[in-house]
């Protein structure tokens, strides 16, 4: 970078650090005042990301609403869905939501060990949910209910698969977060990360409500 400095860079350079330190000053001043790391705007930014993610899911739900009855002679929801297994995975996600809440409470009380334990429990429930989902997908694949079969199955695999992908990413994030907590303890940065993943995790549970109500329960009745 510095090896190829242009004359213009010399003009810009003095401004750079000044701006950065200005931001740092405000951030630390803020954290001091409210004793809270999420006044930096990160939480609001992450929230806006979640809202855009919500739109992605909304579009996938809209697609499923439009083509969800087009079976093209293939299997219908009542033929292929095992509602008792869906109830089980719903409870896995619900349990993981409340255990994540307990992790956040313990983090705010600066109890690193309890925070990590609750996060691990959350991860186990998340992994159980993913295991049930993989089991369902393998079952569907084995009976020929593949995405290529009908428009209904295409949008089903896309919608539920996208949600499952999010949970997978969230579980990986959880593991990385545990390593960061182990290495650095409950710092401001780690606290912010835990709060962001908290939003992400609860958001995924919220999307799942739409999935089980609309994709599974209502479709089985129709």
């Amino acid at each position: 970078m510095s090896a190829t400095t242009m004359p213009g860079d010399h003009v810009d350079m003095p401004n750079g650090p000044e701006v950065v330190s200005g931001i740092d000053f405000h951030v630390s001043g803020h954290a001091h005042d409210a004793d809270h790391s999420h006044d930096t705007g990160t939480m609001l930014g992450f929230w806006l990301y979640l809202m855009s993610d919500c739109l992605i899911f909304g579009v996938l739900f809209a697609v499923h609403a439009v083509v969800g009855q087009n079976f093209a002679g293939g299997p219908a929801p009542a033929d292929i869905f095992e509602i008792d297994m869906i109830l089980l995975s719903t409870f896995m996600l619900l349990f993981s939501s409340i255990t994540y809440g307990f992790a956040v409470i313990n983090m705010q009380q600066r109890k690193l060990r309890n925070t990590a334990l609750w996060l691990i429990v959350t991860g186990v429930f998340g992994a159980a949910f993913l295991g049930l989902e993989v089991r369902e997908f393998l079952h569907l694949w084995s009976i020929g209910a593949v995405p290529m079969e009908s428009a209904f199955l295409s949008s089903f695999w896309l919608l539920v698969g996208t949600h499952g992908l999010h949970v997978t990413v969230g579980t990986i994030w959880l593991c990385v977060l545990l390593v960061q907590l182990y290495m650095h303890g409950i710092t401001d940065a780690n606290e912010r990360r835990v709060m962001c993943l908290s939003l992400f995790w609860h958001f995924l549970d919220l999307i799942w409500i739409g999935v089980f109500s609309f994709v599974y329960l209502a479709a089985v009745l129709l």
Binding site: S97, H202, D205, L206, I209, G210, F212, S213, F214, L217, A218, L221
Partner: peptide, 12 residues
Amino acid sequence: IFVLGTGQILVH
């Protein structure tokens, strides 16, 4: 199904 689902989303 839909009313209770909406309710649960609000609860979350």
